[in-house]
Design a protein around this nucleic acid. Structure first.
Length: 483
RNA sequence: GGCCCCGUGGUCAAGCGGUCAAGACACCGCCCUUUCACGGCGGUAACAGGGGUUCGAGUCCCCUCGGGGUCACCA
């Protein structure tokens, strides 16, 4: 058996779409699993959509996700160049072969003419299909127009009868009547091939054995096979992938700010979590396992686990994965990662980041939630004294002053302001007074934080704030309760 | 609308003719606990509908319904 060669062939649009990323991932997993060759090809035949720097985004994203290609624009390879715009001259000769064999033809119809005839057909309530108008031009007429420099495109000449189809590793055998197929454009007026033609030519020339792509290509694939056959080329194995959806009706879209890899990274999602989750949207290892490193995904990947139906991208589940990955980080790694987020609200305050990080790690789902969670340490929030009410603790704004004064007394007596000393002093005093922990600690935490819930309790917060700030907040709270 | 594909809980998803239809997320409850989170335990919730085939169907076939894709000189 010959070596498997696959390709990821994105268009440089400026961002890496999650659907595209997942395609790349499955492509990569499949290839590595079978010790194949992974090719990166840039499909930039639409010159109107050229975006500067877009190719670098593709490189960077793939690399940071740990997907490395064996052949590509930057590293070359035996079948380059790997950028379609640089291959412009390779397509027309193959189109001419098709023209000579009658499987394609020159078309001189203008956009206006097309629009007119199309409108006429649709006015009758029929479905428009290119009418093969230019197929009936005589060779002389064609020569004449060509010599006159009339702009032209090259169209595929699809048979009017018979059927075309292909086998897909996910979707099985798909067959369509040729009569429903349009004579698609192969070469555009600017001389560039369309995607439809370029992918066939390049996949052949680059010896691609397995084509993995989104299922939106399912309906045009029969036409590609007609091309392969006409050219006498071997048809690759197809693996079409189900769509990634935003919800039951919409695909993931750029509009909602949740479609691009960079959106998630910017929000504070971990690449490993995103990749792990993405792998499971549309694919299953066949068992209960959910956590995978890239190497483990490669090991576990099997085309048989690919789903046929569109899958909804569940941000909540992604977030759960992210939180799980964060919990698995070493404290050092977490501290490093969370520091910039702490800095957003705590920079320059001399806060004990190490201790704060310990408190925050199990409470971090996505890093962009961090600033809001620790902001109270920088600035005492406005709050309502109803927060002092806690039924189980039997505390309220009425009982709080007494509790706070109790705490104040204990805290004042602490010589060395460390967390363990604060803890010891407070707990000791509470026990001695025969009180319940919460009776003192709940109001104290409210007085120091002004929040319903906080990372860490009263003791941790007091230690983090330092003596001065703690006592000041206590005093303020007493005033507030008195007023 | 034509053509193609798909259809197990709210979501992902196992199931591949024969145990009470796994598991995860989310949600709810309990425990732990100075709040929250983590952790532990438990719970609600599904084979779209209708016909067949079969001793037996979520698993096979047909129809209906529902959803998606595609009908560009975009990819």
């Amino acid at each position: 058996m010959s070596v498997i060669r696959t390709r990821f062939a994105p268009s440089p649009t400026g961002f890496m779409h999650l659907g595209g990323l997942r395609t790349a991932l499955y492509d990569y997993l499949f290839t590595r699993k079978h010790n194949g060759v992974f090719v990166l090809r840039i499909e930039d035949t639409d010159q109107d959509r050229f975006v500067p720097g877009a190719t670098e985004v593709i490189y960077d994203t793939l690399r940071s996700c740990g997907m490395h290609w064996d052949e590509g624009p930057d590293i070359g390879g035996p079948y380059g160049p790997y950028v379609q715009s640089e291959r412009k001259d390779t397509y027309l000769p193959h189109a001419k072969t098709l023209i000579d064999s009658g499987d394609a033809y020159y078309c001189f119809c203008t956009h206006e003419e097309l629009a007119q005839r199309r409108a006429a057909v649709e006015a009758k309530g029929e479905t428009w299909k290119y009418d093969k108008h230019c197929l009936h031009l005589t060779p002389e007429e064609v020569q004449q127009k060509l010599q006159a420099g009339t702009p032209y495109v090259v169209r595929q000449n699809v048979p009017l009868t018979g059927q075309s189809g292909f086998d897909d590793l996910v979707y099985g055998t798909i067959t369509v009547d040729n009569s429903t197929l349009d004579d698609m454009v192969l070469i555009k007026a600017d001389g560039m091939p369309t995607y439809n033609f370029a992918n066939v030519v390049d996949d052949h020339l680059m010896r691609i054995t397995h084509v993995m792509r989104g299922m939106e290509y399912l309906s045009s694939t029969p036409r590609y096979n007609l091309l392969y056959r006409a050219l006498g080329w071997e048809v690759p194995t197809y693996i079409h992938l189900p769509t990634v959806m935003r919800d039951a009706h919409k695909k993931l879209s750029k509009r909602d700010g949740d479609a691009f890899y960079s959106d998630f990274i910017d929000k504070g999602y971990l690449t490993e979590a995103l990749i792990n989750y993405l792998a499971l949207v549309g694919w299953s290892p066949g068992n209960d396992r959910e956590f995978f490193t890239m190497d483990e995904l490669i090991e576990a990947f099997d085309v048989k686990g690919l789903s046929k139906s569109p899958a909804i991208f569940d941000i909540e589940k992604l977030t759960w994965f992210n939180a799980a990955y964060i919990r698995q980080m070493t404290p050092e790694a977490y501290l490093e990662k969370v520091t910039p987020w702490f800095d957003q609200v705590l920079e320059g305050r001399g806060m004990d980041y190490k201790r704060l990080a310990e408190l925050m790690q199990t409470r971090t789902e996505v890093f962009n939630q961090v600033p809001d969670m620790v902001r109270f340490l920088a600035e005492m929030p406005e709050y309502d004294i109803s927060l002092y009410t806690h039924k189980k603790m039997k505390t309220s704004a009425d009982t709080a002053p007494e509790a706070l004064r109790f705490a104040q007394g204990v805290l004042t007596g602490i010589a060395d302001w460390t967390e363990s000393n604060i803890h010891e002093a407070l707990m000791g005093a509470i026990a001695q007074a025969g009180l319940k922990n919460g009776a003192i600690l709940w109001p104290l935490r409210i007085a120091l934080s002004g929040l319903q819930s906080t990372p860490g309790g009263a003791v941790e917060i007091a230690a983090l704030l330092g003596r001065e700030e703690t006592m000041a907040r206590l005093e303020k709270a007493l005033e507030k309760l008195a007023g």
